[in-house]
Computed example of a mutant assay.
Amino acid sequence: MGSVTSSDTPALATNPRLIFFTDFDGTVTTHDSNDYMTDNLGFGLALRRQGNQDVLLRGRPFRDSFQEMMDSIKLPFDQCIATLRATIKLDPGFRAFFDWCRANNVPIVVLSGGMQPVIRSLLEMWLGDEARHIQVVSNDVAPREGKSINDEGGWQIRFHDDSIHGHDKSIEIRKYSSLPDRPVMLYAGDGVSDLSAAKETDLLFAKAGKDLVTYCEMEKVPFVTFQDFTTIHETVREIHEGKLTAKDAALGRIHE
Rank of each mutant, 00 (worst) to 15 (best):
K220P: 00
L244T: 10
F223D: 03
E238N: 11
I239N: 08
D202F: 06
T230C: 04
L203T: 08
E234Y: 06
T231V: 12
D211S: 14
I239F: 09
T235E: 03
H240I: 01
L204H: 07
F205Y: 07
L212C: 12
T230A: 07
C216V: 09
K207Y: 05
K220M: 00
H233M: 01
E219S: 11
E217N: 13
L203G: 12
Q227H: 13
F223N: 05
F226E: 01
F229G: 02
L212G: 07
H240F: 10
T235Q: 12
T214W: 03
K243N: 12
R237S: 06
Y215N: 09
T225V: 07
V221L: 04
D228W: 01
T201R: 08
T235C: 13
F229D: 01
T225R: 13
T235Y: 14
T225A: 10
E217R: 14
L244E: 07
H240Y: 10
G242K: 12
K220G: 01
E234T: 14
K210V: 00
A206T: 00
L244R: 15
L204A: 12
L244D: 12
G209S: 08
D228V: 00
D228Q: 05
L203N: 08
T225G: 12
F223H: 14
H233V: 01
H233F: 03
D202Y: 08
I232H: 08
T214D: 03
T231A: 14
I239D: 05
V213C: 13
F223A: 04
E217M: 10
K207R: 15
V236K: 12
D228Y: 05
P222G: 13
G209M: 04
E234V: 06
R237T: 08
M218N: 15
M218A: 15
V236H: 11
L204G: 12
K210G: 00
F229C: 02
K220H: 14
Y215R: 14
H233K: 08
M218E: 11
G242A: 11
P222A: 05
D228R: 02
D211R: 15
E234W: 02
L212D: 05
T201H: 09
G209Y: 09
V213M: 04
K243W: 06
G209C: 05
E219Y: 11
K243A: 13
V213T: 13
T214Y: 09
F205L: 06
L204R: 08
K207I: 05
V221G: 03
I232A: 09
Q227Y: 01
V224I: 15
T225D: 13
V236D: 03
F223G: 08
L244N: 12
D211C: 04
A208F: 03
T201A: 04
C216L: 10
E219L: 02
Y215V: 14
T225Y: 07
V221Y: 02
V236S: 10
T231L: 02
Y215G: 12
D211K: 14
T201C: 15
V236W: 03
T225W: 11
R237E: 09
V224W: 04
M218D: 13
E217K: 15
G242Y: 04
T201W: 01
E234G: 02
F205N: 06
